[in-house]
């Protein structure tokens, strides 16, 4: 997490940081897809373990696990409780309390879904924490993603904390003029209007200044572009990408045949 409360890139010198963003993207996606295809608990836990292991190898394990736990805790309650009570798969009751029955099949399904989700969340957080955004967009541009799309991606990463900070300033200013933001529905509606209007106008003014500055720095120029960072993909990484793709295909094929 950074100071704004958002989970962001954490610079470090680790083997996971050193991987090309594309390699991480392919391997991460493969790991999540394989998790979906694996039937038993053993495979599921191995993939989750691999995801967690990569986070720790990347030196971001603690923050990834902490954030993943924060994200997954409410989902865990929902998944296990809802599936346990309302998915009577196999019709084997585990316990009954008055009108409520906890079904073994539902409970297992809830836990499986949770492990799959946990793998996805850990992989995604590890990717974010170990992948420099600018290197990611450079790699994507070299794979054919338009420059403007990559700019929008990078700018959007900063937009939310910027708007959050601006909203805080506006709320402070309006409260200082007697606006009550803790009252009933009418007060809250008034507060919303007093917040939304300057927020929107301020964002538009900022966008105007930014677009002028970008234009003056050649944003719309038509000539060839270059990039500050070189994102290399050594042969070993290309092999790893191929291995990941084959792994997904083999697992999927095995599931279909089985």
């Amino acid at each position: 997490m950074n100071g704004t409360g958002f989970f962001t890139y954490q610079p470090a010198d680790s083997p996971i940081h050193a991987l090309s963003p594309v390699t991480k993207l392919v391997c991460g996606a493969a790991l999540v897809l394989v998790t979906f295809a694996l039937p038993g608990w053993g495979g599921l836990l191995v993939t989750l373990g691999l995801a967690v292991l990569s986070a720790f190898v990347g030196g971001v394990g603690r923050s990834v696990v902490r954030t993943a736990a924060t994200v997954l805790a409410p989902l865990a309650v929902g998944l296990v409780v809802l599936h346990g009570l309302f998915t009577p798969a196999g019709r084997v009751p585990l316990a009954t309390l008055g009108p409520l029955t906890v079904w073994q099949g539902g409970l297992v399904l809830g836990l499986r879904t949770l492990v799959i989700l946990a793998t996805f969340v850990v992989v995604a957080l590890t990717f974010v924490a170990t992948t420099h955004p600018k290197r990611l967009t450079t790699a994507l541009i070299e794979r054919g993603v338009p420059e403007n799309v990559s700019y929008v991606f990078l700018a959007s990463l900063q937009l939310v904390p910027d708007l959050q900070a601006r909203a805080r300033r506006i709320l402070d200013a309006q409260q200082s003029r007697g606006l009550d933001v803790s009252g009933g529905l009418t007060d809250r509606f008034r507060a919303f209007v007093a917040l939304a209007s300057p927020l929107l106008i301020g964002a538009l003014v900022s966008a105007q200044t930014r677009s002028l500055a970008l234009e003056a720095r050649g944003f719309s120029g038509q000539g060839p572009r270059t990039h500050l960072y070189q994102v290399s993909e050594p042969p070993a990484e290309r092999l790893l990408q191929a291995f990941a793709v084959v792994g997904v295909l083999v697992t999927a094929g095995w599931r279909v045949l089985a």
């Binding site: 600018k134 700018a155 900063q158 200044t209 930014r210 720095r217 050649g218 120029g221 270059t226």
Partner: peptide, 21 residues
């Protein structure tokens, strides 16, 4: 507001125009 809003470091901010030309 005049910064690109898409640079994670000061160096990247300055490099933006150089990349574009």
């Amino acid at each position: 507001d005049q910064l690109t809003g898409a640079a994670t470091t000061v160096l990247e901010e300055v490099a933006f125009g150089l990349e574009r030309i």
